[in-house]
Design a protein around this nucleic acid. Structure first.
Lengths: 207, 207, 207, 207
DNA sequence: GATGAATGAGTTTTCATTCAT
DNA sequence: GATGAATGAAAACTCATTCAT
């Protein structure tokens, strides 16, 4: 019974934490790290400012937690996507499909994520940067392995170094998904979402 | 004679403005918008803070001017690169070559530029964003036109919508150039810089 | 039996209170009133913060209780010291000896005590001040009475008003004891601890 | 003419600084370091909070400057007092007289000064402490030298080590002056202010 | 026209205290 | 009766911006 109580409290704590992170995410992705105050976050999450500081030791810690947890979810989903199907081509298709879903469902986090991994991220004093980039690199190597195995199994021609192919797929999918999600009026989602893959899959120049 | 004086004054003003922007660029690209103070910029540029405010009505305006002018230089260089050669394939080659040079020479601005166009750019309250994106879109259409003409002239297969091809080339070149510039130890520049183009140019899957 | 239980509970309460005060004393004397938090005290005393507030209505009250009780012990020891011997000269000797022992054994409290009685004591909003000063005054009169009786009994010359002599002995002994305790390397304890008294005695005592 | 302007500005700056320090002194001596906020000081001095921070880099710096400057004035006055007269006995008399004047005129600073040199001073994170104690020690040695010379010149009996005599005079004069200044109703200033010296002199001076 | 001193709104963070469990 | 989670007032400090000289 003590345990039960403990666990109820645990769960309650977790729920509160999630609410704080959710409020912070919404504000950060809308206005950026430096244009959001801790008071604002506390208010949006409907907690006292002191309570916020009970959960996160300072603003940077809150931001770091937010980004790291979201990036983990993101990378886990993608990792799972390329692990499940057996065939390499299907792995890539599943990768694009999953990424598209994650982007669509979490466009605001994605923005934050790109601010960290692409642009010059000085929002946050060094550190987060490294943490996230490490995870990103890990995933890229996993993706490269898919290409490598595909080449070995003669599913793919070796038109480039596997790691380069991974980089290519990553950047192409980012670019197209952002294009379609950013301005759906000008650039509606294509009927066949394989567009991204086709660019890689087909050869461009007459042979 | 009045004119001459005026124009000397004009030129003098322009020079001062450039000095301010140069100081600001160095600081912003090193530390980020929010970690640089107007005093710091004034000091580095060797002007009084009041003088800085004579040239730019506020910090945001200074930043906007900086980014916009740099983006213009960038786009002009790229536009020229795809205008000069006659053949479409050479245009694309020249595009990648020029981009590579501009990136290498201005990596710090490029970072700032990506923070604006890619990641969630809230450094700056809405507005800058639009201004730059418009210029970016314009350039993308120019690039798309190259693909379109190439397809018409049977230099390229129509493996995708020309605009999509432009997006693809843009994102691939960004990704690879950043990869190589970011960590030259892990990812050295390839002997053959056509790597980027080859991915597009060759076909991936066996046919 | 009720009584016994009550008294056991009483004793238990008293013990807890003492533990709290002991923890507080250690922290206050090490870091000063304003650099110690109630949480810190609670943690050191191994009680919940709420329990601390059951015993002391606020931080000031806790501090007051602490200082007052320590000052009482201090004054009681000194009072006893000048009551026990019969001869006035021996009383004074015993006073210095006892003070020396108390200082040596409680240097940290002594610091706190002086912060209250000497320096501008604003650690604590008015009040404590008065309480302690009253006790101090009482003791000074007791000490003055020793000199008075000594003069009457022709043990001492009347070189000054008895109260002034008390003030003199008090300040001299404080100064020398602090000198010796503060930096024992530079100012070691003299072989003959009568040094303090000798300064007064040379003029005071009939020879 | 440039110089004149400069110097006017200099003087203006100095005057402002003095006003800030005066406001701070009044507040600190009334309420103590931790019970005075920078806003309060700014308001009392009739400056904006930002201006206060232009003159002192933080609260501690302001406090340190205040105490150090006042302590210097204090020690300089006392040093001068024991340098001027030729005869050792007159030096001591002048010392007590000067101290009495300084105490009377600056009772609030004196409080602050004692809080630093006597009581456990944690108001301020280490440092100030040392700085002031050093000055204090220097002065004590100067005072000890007076006793030493007096003994050599047979003006004084050698009833104790010269440094001890200095400590004795210092503590006695502090104690009596504070006694008289603190509660003039209970302990009025004696007609003959030599009371303090007499206590020492009875044993000290050859008769 | 340039200057830079002065401003004060706004930010992060701490901590004494309360009160529902 | 004990607990400790939650509170929010208040503090130190920064920095974009103005305006008198």
């Amino acid at each position: 019974m003590k345990d039960k109580k403990e666990s109820r409290r645990e769960r309650e704590k977790f729920r509160q934490r999630q609410e704080m992170l959710a409020a912070a995410l919404e504000l950060f992705s809308e206005k950026g790290y430096h244009n959001v105050s801790m008071h604002e976050i506390a208010e949006k999450a409907e907690f006292a400012i002191g309570t916020l500081y009970k959960f996160f030791k300072n603003k940077e810690d809150l931001y770091k937690s937010l980004i790291t947890e979201q990036a983990d979810r993101f990378h886990q989903a993608l990792t799972k996507a390329i692990e499940e199907p057996d065939d390499e081509i299907e792995k890539l298709r599943n990768y694009v499909k999953t990424k598209r879903e994650v982007f669509a469902a979490n466009i605001s986090v994605i923005r934050l994520y790109f601010a960290e991994t692409r642009g010059a991220s000085f929002n946050i004093k060094a550190g987060l940067d490294k943490e996230i980039r490490k995870r990103y690199d890990q995933f890229m190597h996993t993706l490269a392995a898919v290409f490598e195995r595909g080449i070995k199994r003669k599913r793919f021609q070796k038109i480039a170094d596997p790691y380069h192919l991974a980089v290519a797929l990553d950047s192409l999918s980012n670019a197209f998904l952002l294009l379609w999600l950013d301005s759906p009026e000008d650039h509606p989602f294509p009927e066949n979402p394989d567009v991204i893959l086709n660019i890689l899959f087909k050869g461009l120049v007459y042979t």
